[in-house]
């Protein structure tokens, strides 16, 4: 849908930028993005993408808001406790930007949701099984996949532009047979703003991908909030990867 007068006002700070402008804003408006997981990462990702005017957003999470979420999951209010996260998030996001179409899926991620024509998927989940489902579906459909995670003071970001690169995927980096680590947010805690930083990195990466500025396929970035340190590393294809390795072709 072409930008209207209200859009020109709302997105004026994008339109002022030479490397976004009207064409870039139109690309954002035409995009369909699925956000899987509406916890500490999914909240800032959804807020920034809806505010930025990404035209259609899917929200997927089976959980209900719990009081222990409120320390870091910034879309929810105390009165939301007990309600479905996707319902509360949809309401808050529509109030932020009624021009964005939001779909809600109150169930765990599955192949049916992932096959619904999204241009890009954002992984804000908290477990390896969900990441593998998303990775495999995005690889098969040649759509970009932006993944992040956080625990304690630490965060991780890695993104794959499967539309342009067919080697190297999430399963090359984390063995698909790996067990879940002992330490997670529920048993070890997490600093809220660390999730905000990693979620903001994800949202920025989504915008870069949609605008054609992303060139770091499979590069992993780590953040240590306690020491204020960043580390970026390259990854390489695992020839035995069940998703993209030589045996899978």
């Amino acid at each position: 849908m072409p930008l209207n007068d209200d859009d020109f006002m709302r997105y004026s700070r994008h339109l002022l930028m030479g490397d976004i402008g009207e064409l870039g804003q139109q690309r954002l408006s035409d995009a369909r993005v699925l956000i899987v997981g509406l916890g500490g990462l999914g909240c800032p990702v959804a807020l920034y993408l809806v505010a930025a005017g990404v035209g259609q957003i899917g929200l997927c999470d089976p959980d209900r808001v719990d009081k222990t979420n409120l320390q870091r999951q910034v879309l929810y209010r105390t009165d939301d406790c007990g309600s479905l996260k996707v319902g509360c998030a949809k309401q808050a996001l529509e109030a932020l930007n009624p021009g964005v179409t939001i779909s809600a899926f109150a169930r765990p991620i599955d192949k049916e949701i992932l096959a619904d024509g999204y241009h890009l998927v954002v992984d804000c989940t908290d477990n390896l099984a969900a990441r593998q489902i998303i990775n495999d579906a995005c690889y098969a459909q040649r759509i970009p996949f932006v993944s992040a995670a956080a625990v304690g003071w630490e965060g991780q970001l890695v993104a794959f532009d499967f539309g342009r690169f067919r080697s190297l995927c999430f399963n090359c980096i984390i063995d698909h047979n790996s067990a879940e680590p002992m330490m997670n947010c529920a048993n070890s805690g997490v600093v809220g703003p660390v999730l905000g930083i990693m979620g903001s990195m994800q949202a920025t990466t989504v915008i870069r991908l949609l605008l054609g500025y992303f060139k770091q396929h499979g590069e992993m970035t780590r953040y240590d909030g306690k020491r204020g340190q960043w580390l970026s590393m390259h990854c390489s294809r695992n020839q035995q990867c069940p998703t993209c390795g030589a045996a899978s072709v």
């Binding site: 625990v151 997670n184 947010c185």
Partner: peptide, 22 residues
């Protein structure tokens, strides 16, 4: 990022990265 059996040489920087999944 390498596998655990990667040969190491003089001057290499070896980094250990804890799991982050939440």
């Amino acid at each position: 990022i390498v596998k655990w059996d990667q040969p190491l040489f003089d001057g290499d920087e070896l980094a250990f990265l804890p799991p982050v999944t939440g």
